[in-house]
């Protein structure tokens, strides 16, 4: 397992038209951990470790830490995370978060969403249908920070 962390921030700065006007005051930092259930003296507990070996069925925790480094408060802060195709969102995250099953067009709780099956009939959406996750933070004060995260299982 080789862990690659590349910074796309510079790329974003160079291409986004908004960036030309103003340096973004909020910084996002993504991370991933492997969730393992270990049994110590008869009790099971979940530990997070750096992913060294990852195989299908493993549970991952993707997190994104945001921090307002600027001097002004920001509002309407919306974090969007396309779900990598090689994972499916774990049930606990799938039922609790605002998700999309149509490539990010519409969001809602999973229980309220439907997808069309091969025959064109609508069926209730399932965790494996999720394409995007979205979190909304009304405002972040200068110096404020937080973390959004979701659990996923390697398909």
């Amino acid at each position: 397992m080789i862990r690659i962390i590349s910074t796309l921030l510079a790329f974003a700065l160079a291409t986004s038209p908004a960036m030309a006007q103003q340096t973004p005051s909020v910084v996002l930092e993504g991370d991933v951990k492997l969730e393992k259930t270990v049994e110590a003296s008869g009790a099971k507990k979940t530990v997070l470790e750096d992913p060294k070996v990852v195989v299908p069925g493993d549970k991952l925790l993707f997190s994104t830490r945001y921090a307002n480094k600027g001097s002004q408060s920001v509002d309407n802060f919306v974090v969007t995370n396309p779900v990598p195709q090689a994972v499916r969102v774990a049930d606990d995250s799938a039922s609790a978060l605002q998700v999309s099953v149509d490539g990010g067009k519409a969001y809602g709780l999973l229980a309220s969403l439907t997808v069309k099956d091969a025959a064109g009939a609508a069926r209730a959406a399932r965790a494996e249908d999720i394409t995007h996750i979205r979190w909304t933070v009304p405002a972040i004060a200068p110096g404020g920070s937080g973390t959004v995260e979701y659990h996923a299982i390697v398909r």
Partner: peptide, 10 residues
């Protein structure tokens, strides 16, 4: 403003 995080890759 929009901003991207780094990409984590495993």
């Amino acid at each position: 403003t929009t901003v991207n995080s780094n990409t984590v890759s495993i």
